[in-house]
Every structure is written in structure tokens, then in C-alpha cells.
Computed example of a mutant assay.
Amino acid sequence: MASTGPTVLSYNNCLLRRSDLALLEGPRWLNDQVIAFAFEYFEYDLFKDFSDDVSFIGPDIAQFIKLSQDAEVGMFLESLNLAFKQLVFLAINDNDSDTSVGGSHWSLLVCSRRDSTFRHYDSSGSFNEHAARQIAMKMQPHVGLEKAHVMFAQEQCTQQENCYDCGLFVICNAEHVCKHHFQGTPLTGAVTQASVTRKRGELKELILQLAAQDDVK
């Protein structure tokens, strides 16, 4: 979904327009830009104290990894120093085209060096498992894990009760997995349909607050 309208916020490498913000104002499917913003906010603000140990890879790069040749993936990922990260988060989409924006579902893939496992959190059963496995196989040589010891786990997680909240589940699952790993907060029960619904308003308010801060600089 292409962004349109005036710019609302420029945040690090992410540009949000009025149409992006509107996705948070009602029961709508989130696009690449909103998820990319959340991941950048996690990396550069909320979890900045753990920046040496965690990396958040947004939808555009995850899609590139999935659809590109192994050599291209290696050249691109080398600069990210992923082999030294404890956790790597990726936002996964089921779109198989490299020429158009699309897809119908988001899920979260987490690479954990602690137990050499790619963990897939999918709020719609195993809908995106094939795409997640594709990316995990391409990521393995670049995250400091030996192929013989790498595992893939389809994690149990709260399931969405509608057809449009998958992107919010990705954001909420990523936040709480990171909190659990680095801050020891409980993971079980942390993400519910109610908390995901609240996250829409919280994200909108956060974006507007950051935009207001930019205006006064």
C-alpha cells in the first residue's frame, strides 16, 4: 500500500505520511511503513540500551532477503554485523512478488543465538511458515549459527480474532519478546487481542508526539 498525503513524521530512515497514520485510526491492515517505524523506534529508542545485542529488520529488507539470490543477501547483510547480535527480529510478509507491493498477512521471525533457533510467531496459525522458513535458511549463514545446529520453531502465540490485526501482532510480539529476553518480563499472556487493539491508539499517539517534538526543534 503506497503512502500518500502530507508528511506527518520523518524518523531516522522512516517517513510516515497522513495515509499511514490513518491506518491506525480504524480497523485496517498495517502497511510496510507503519511496521518499519515501530521497528526503528524499538531499535533507536525503546531498546537502545541493548543496541549491541539486538537488530530489527523491517519489511522491505525481509522481503529482499526472501526473494534475492544468496550472494546478494550475503553482501547486503555483511554490514549489519548480525553474527554478533543475540536477537534478530524480522517482519515477514507472504507476498512472493519482487515487483509489486502486496501480500495478505504479516508474521514475526526471531533469530535467537542463545539457543540457535529461528522462532516464528504467526497470529494466523502457520499461514506464513513457508515464507519464514525461506528467510531463515537464507539468514542462517549470516547470523553466526552453524547450520547443523540451527532449529526452526513454530511458536504458540495469541491468534488474531479478525482479518486486519496481523501487523499489530508483529509489533506487539516483537516488543514483548525483546522485553522478555533483556528485561526478564513474563512472555506468556503478554500479548492479547485487547492489548493489540490498544496498540493502535498507542502507536498513533507516539507518532503524533514525535511529530510535535520535531515541530518545536
Rank of each mutant, 00 (worst) to 15 (best):
Phe84Met: 06
Lys85Ala: 03
Leu87Ala: 09
Val88Pro: 04
Phe89Gly: 00
Leu90His: 04
Leu90Lys: 03
Ala91Arg: 12
Ala91Tyr: 12
Ala91Lys: 05
Ala91Val: 10
Ala91Pro: 11
Ile92Glu: 01
Ile92Gln: 04
Asn93Gly: 11
Asn93Ser: 14
Asn93Asp: 13
Asn93Ile: 06
Asp94Arg: 09
Asn95Tyr: 07
Asp96Val: 12
Ser97Thr: 14
Asp98Glu: 14
Ser100Cys: 09
Val101Thr: 12
Val101Pro: 05
Val101His: 11
Gly102Phe: 08
Gly103Lys: 06
His105Ser: 11
Ser107Lys: 02
Leu108Cys: 12
Leu109Cys: 04
Val110Trp: 01
Cys111Ile: 09
Cys111Val: 14
Ser112Asn: 12
Ser112Phe: 05
Arg113Glu: 00
Arg114Gly: 02
Asp115Met: 10
Ser116Val: 01
Phe118Pro: 07
Phe118Val: 07
His120Gln: 10
His120Tyr: 10
His120Trp: 09
His120Phe: 08
Tyr121Ala: 04
Tyr121His: 12
Asp122Val: 02
Asp122Gly: 08
Phe127Gly: 07
Glu129His: 03
Glu129Asp: 13
Glu129Gln: 15
His130Gly: 04
Ala132Trp: 03
Arg133Ile: 13
Gln134His: 04
Ile135Phe: 06
Ala136Pro: 11
Ala136Trp: 06
Ala136Lys: 05
Met137Glu: 14
Met137Asn: 12
Met137Ser: 15
Lys138His: 09
Pro141Cys: 06
Pro141Phe: 03
Val143Glu: 01
Gly144Ile: 07
Leu145Asp: 00
Leu145Tyr: 05
Lys147Gln: 13
Ala148Ile: 04
His149Leu: 13
His149Trp: 08
His149Arg: 15
His149Gly: 00
Val150Glu: 02
Val150Lys: 00
Val150Leu: 07
Met151Gln: 15
Met151Trp: 00
Met151Ile: 07
Phe152Thr: 07
Ala153Thr: 14
Ala153Gly: 03
Ala153Ser: 14
Ala153Lys: 15
Glu155Tyr: 04
Cys157Pro: 10
Cys157Asn: 14
Cys157Ile: 06
Thr158His: 10
Gln159Cys: 01
Gln159Met: 13
Gln160Thr: 05
Gln160Cys: 10
Glu161Arg: 13
Asn162Arg: 08
Asn162Lys: 10
Cys163Leu: 12
Tyr164Thr: 15
Asp165Trp: 01
Asp165Leu: 06
Cys166Thr: 11
Leu168Asp: 10
Leu168Trp: 06
Phe169His: 09
Phe169Gly: 03
Val170Ser: 11
Ile171Tyr: 07
Cys172Ile: 04
Asn173Val: 01
Glu175Gly: 03
Glu175Asn: 11
Glu175Asp: 04
Glu175Ala: 11
Glu175Pro: 02
His176Asp: 12
His176Lys: 15
His176Asn: 15
Val177Ala: 05
Val177Asn: 12
Val177Pro: 08
Lys179Val: 00
